[in-house]
Design a protein around this nucleic acid. Structure first.
Length: 271
DNA sequence: AAACAGGCCTAAA
DNA sequence: TTTAGGCCTGTT
């Protein structure tokens, strides 16, 4: 039976910002403000009440604490970002964001799909992919699907993904699935090596360039120093940071800084 | 209605 | 090393 678990206070975890800041594609806000989603094949409902965040799921508290990166002190991490006004503003604006520790394959595959695409369509493609090939699951009578494994997708022909309407990304999904299923890429092993080496391994995949690789290692492999640069970040860096600014100066949590900046810039920033 | 989307690949300088 | 154009297909 699923149970309700109190996870952490809302000042540590802002579920709206965390789910809407663009790092994930499977959490959806209901009219009642409750988010539903799936992680690790476990459906869940996440909501806030009385200053605390709760999760209802069959997966235990430890699972969700890990998923929400509960062990990290975000205030301490953000305190080391001092020195750039735009980043300070971003941190204040995004306070409560946590970097989700998503599953490696889901992160890789999702960000392959994300290229040159908008959020609405990305979420649509991902949901169709899960409904077509994911593991069915249920929570309180509501049906969900887990994210399909690389093994499951590796046996498909590109043609079979036509109804996904992922366009030219379909072949990238299949080849990545095959590389993972065949063991050419061992995603779990990429957690334990350096960020740069993990990225280099992913860059060998067709359809995976700098940006997607950075997202995959940051959101799926726990490499918090990764700093994905997309059009929003590029613009923010150009307009609000010194020309010679190097994201590496942000240290081993540069990826967190990136997410604050991304969310702030996309939300309109203060230009 | 046409531009643009959270890139990547290839060809060509 | 940098740049231009093409790529699937929705969404705005």
């Amino acid at each position: 039976m699923p149970e309700n678990v109190r996870l952490m206070p809302r000042d540590k975890l802002d579920i709206v910002k965390t789910f809407e800041c663009g790092q994930c594609f499977r959490w959806n806000r209901g009219e009642d403000g409750v988010y539903t989603g799936v992680a690790g094949n476990s459906p869940a409902r996440v909501w806030e009440s009385g200053g605390e965040v709760f999760v209802r799921s069959e997966a235990g508290k430890e699972f969700w604490e890990d998923y929400f990166d509960g062990a990290r002190d975000y205030d301490a991490a953000a305190a080391r970002f001092e020195g750039w006004k735009y980043l300070d503003d971003s941190v204040n604006f995004g306070k409560g964001i946590r970097i989700l520790r998503q599953e490696p394959w889901e992160a890789l595959c999702s960000f392959i799909i994300s290229q040159c695409n908008n959020i609405t369509r990305i979420k649509g493609i991902v949901e169709r992919l899960c409904a077509m090939y994911g593991e069915p699951a249920e929570l309180d009578g509501q049906s969900f699907y887990g994210f399909p494994t690389a093994e499951r997708l590796s046996g498909l022909a590109v043609r079979e993904l036509a109804e996904l309407r992922a366009g030219y990304r379909a072949q990238y999904i299949i080849s990545a699935a095959r590389a993972v299923a065949e063991g050419k890429i061992d995603l779990e092993a990429l957690r334990g090596i350096s960020c740069d080496r993990a990225k280099a391994a992913l860059l060998t995949l067709p359809g995976v360039g700098e940006k997607v690789a950075n997202c995959a290692v940051l959101f799926g492999l726990g490499h918090m120093e990764a700093f994905p640069i997309d059009v929003w970040i590029r613009r923010a860096l150009k307009e609000h940071f010194p020309a010679d600014f190097d994201p590496a100066a942000l240290g081993d949590c540069a990826g967190l800084a990136q997410q604050y900046i991304f969310y702030f810039a996309r939300s309109g920033g203060n230009s």
